[in-house]
């Protein structure tokens, strides 16, 4: 399922996100670089508190205070025109960029819809905000089309959020995310609150929609096995940094970082032979006091001398040949440059 993808859509470069200012700041995301190509599905995996969602909020400039992007750039390449840095957009430009270019489906399927407005109102106000000259009839037609797209009956337009099931609400959110045909849809644990059957159903629908409409997806989840099936490329985050990035199949077959391996062994595979689930001992690091060196070393079964003192660089490991992949681990040293 790997496609040849060359044209970048969103380039995240050296992004740092802090909560708070000065010395008290908690460094939630550190030096993250990640490129999403046109039409690609990129998975972002990691435990709770690894900085996945913070990264998503940072990239879309939706960080709740006191979160701030303290360094880096997020370069967006529009279909036509010059690329620009999302972080430098003015308030007005940002509003135009949002939803039209990058939309988001949040993890809170239950609370993402405003309880006092009908589904139709919430689908249509997004369209109206970006296409103020559109007629009400055309917006209504588009709202109907969106619901059809995600497999919900048209008459549900008149429903209030509390009259829909969790799965339906999340499908409404996906439909809403596609309202303006964005280039990129960020999915922040979109199926975590749903049962497994509903997860599969919604993800299947998502894959189909993506094939049809051709948008890129940044899929954030802690469920690595899910990503292996649905994404082209996977980035693994730990303690605010990307520790490994590789094509899905490569991660699944041969995880280089011990943390990726641990994550992979924490979930049952969706297909294939059964294997024992082991999990990762210990708990995620406290972001206020990160371990020195590689932040994973206190939990790492394979840690050795340099791990506790020196930070490994993310790069193409010297011992690797073949399709491009990067890892930050002393087991696979990277020659700088």
């Amino acid at each position: 399922m790997t496609r040849v993808l060359t044209r970048p859509l969103l380039e995240i470069k050296n992004l740092d996100v802090d909560y708070g200012l000065g010395d008290e700041a908690v460094k939630a995301v550190r030096d993250v670089s990640l490129t999403i190509h046109r039409g690609e599905v990129v998975g972002l995996a990691g435990e709770s508190g690894s900085g996945k969602s913070t990264l998503a909020y940072g990239v879309t400039r939706l960080l709740p205070p006191p979160g701030v992007v303290s360094n880096g750039s997020v370069v967006y390449h529009p279909p036509t025109g010059d690329p620009y840095d999302v972080l430098n957009l003015s308030h007005h430009e940002l509003r135009k960029y949002r939803w039209a270019e990058t939309s988001i489906v949040f993890q809170g399927a239950m609370n993402s819809l405003n309880p006092v407005h009908k589904v139709s109102v919430q689908l249509m106000d997004a369209i109206k905000a970006h296409e103020p000259t559109s007629s009400k009839a055309s917006r209504l037609a588009r709202a109907k089309e969106l619901l059809r797209l995600v497999g919900i009956a048209e008459d549900r337009l008149e429903a209030y959020p509390h009259q829909l099931s969790g799965g339906m609400r999340q499908r409404v959110m996906i439909g809403m995310a596609l309202a303006l045909e964005p280039q990129l849809v960020i999915m922040d644990e979109p199926t975590t609150a749903l049962d497994v059957v509903m997860q599969r159903q919604i993800l299947g629908q998502l894959v189909e929609l993506r094939e049809r409409l051709g948008f890129s997806v940044l899929f954030i989840t802690h469920d690595l096995s899910l990503l292996v099936e649905f994404s082209d490329r996977i980035a693994i985050m730990y303690g605010g940094r990307i520790v490994e990035e590789a094509p899905s199949a490569a991660i699944y077959r041969d995880p280089k970082h011990p943390y990726s391996e641990g994550l992979l062994r924490s979930f049952p595979a969706l297909r294939g032979a059964r294997r024992e689930l082991t999990g990762i001992p210990g708990s995620p690091p406290d972001l206020r006091g990160m371990p020195t060196g590689c932040s994973f070393h206190p939990r790492c079964p394979k840690a050795f001398e340099p791990c506790s003192t020196d930070l490994p660089i993310l790069g193409k490991p010297d011992d690797h040949v073949g399709e491009p992949r990067t890892v930050a681990c002393w087991l696979h040293p990277v020659t700088a440059g």
Binding site: T60, L62, P64, L94, R95, K96, Y97, R98, W99, A100, S103, I104, F106, G108, N111, S112, L113, N114, P115, D125, A126, A129, H130, M173, M176
Partner: peptide
Amino acid sequence: EDYITVAHAKGLSDKR
């Protein structure tokens, strides 16, 4: 609430 973040992400005007 999440729906406020969603409303911001949708690019609605601050007033709305």
